[in-house]
Design a protein around this nucleic acid. Structure first.
Lengths: 141, 141
DNA sequence: TTGATATATTTAGTCTGCTAAATATATTTA
DNA sequence: TAAATATATTTAGCAGACTAAATATATCAA
């Protein structure tokens, strides 16, 4: 096994993902969003009124991370929090109108970023790439 | 073009890299390192006495990031800083013995992580994967 | 030589992440 | 019912990463 190749794959992965994150982050600033917040909103666009724990699970991150993101999004008026009526430990997160209106522009930016990453890669190659990625995911989780 | 596939590739990439980062981070804590610091040290193992600007370029990050990483590594005794003799603006970074000794254990952990990611993927597949990644890199930079 | 510009680094402040510990509320069990 | 345990969230504090602005030193040009 050529170890140099393995090494380059990992390093490449790191480089690609950090660069994408950076570019995407910059692009999202035009919408007054920070990278990561789009993913949280994305879950809410699919249905809001969910709890912070559910957001944790979806974002695959820890509770304090959600607390901070939610706080920041609320301060910017994209969402609001309401305590659950039946369980006072639980906070439920709802979109504001301002938050709802972000769906289309975020989707556009996402697709733009997507196309930048993959434009030189054919449909068949994308399929194969996706399959390999899913195998890598399985290896990690 | 199937948009769902495109979407999954990006999301997959995000998931894989953040999970790897998390796992690797945890693994590095056994060596009293934080994720990212290994990469900085790695550049020094290839030759120390370089400037912070050179580290920036290698790590593809901004100067304040290097300032903070270097400060933390210095506080933990892995490196030390010395002002350049001919240009007083420049700080040069050197490994301490403690820093030098980390090379092998970090390399071991890196390989471990590498193998976890790729173990179900054959040599030919790795080659192809690497080629695709390099094309994606080109798309981004 | 003085003034303008360029370069290297630091400081301050923000966000995404994390862990550990605190708080508040629910549930279970003795 | 009271105490122990479980669950949801917050707080505090740290790291990587960023931008904008400050600082210090070099260089270049009039």
């Amino acid at each position: 096994m050529n170890n140099k190749v393995d090494c380059d794959i990992r390093q490449s992965l790191d480089k690609i993902s950090s660069r994408m994150r950076r570019d995407y982050s910059e692009s999202l600033r035009e919408l007054d969003l920070y990278v990561g917040q789009d993913n949280l909103l994305s879950r809410l666009w699919a249905g809001d009124g969910i709890t912070q724990m559910q957001l944790c699970e979806h974002l695959k991150c820890e509770p304090p991370t959600v607390t901070n993101m939610v706080k920041s999004l609320e301060q910017n008026g994209f969402i609001h929090r309401k305590r659950d009526e039946h369980d006072a430990r639980v906070m439920r997160i709802y979109l504001t109108d301002k938050g709802k209106q972000l769906e289309k522009p975020v989707d556009f930016k996402w697709k733009q970023q997507q196309e930048k990453l993959l434009h030189s890669i054919s449909a068949e190659e994308r399929l194969f790439l996706r399959e390999l990625m899913m195998r890598m995911e399985k290896n990690l989780f």
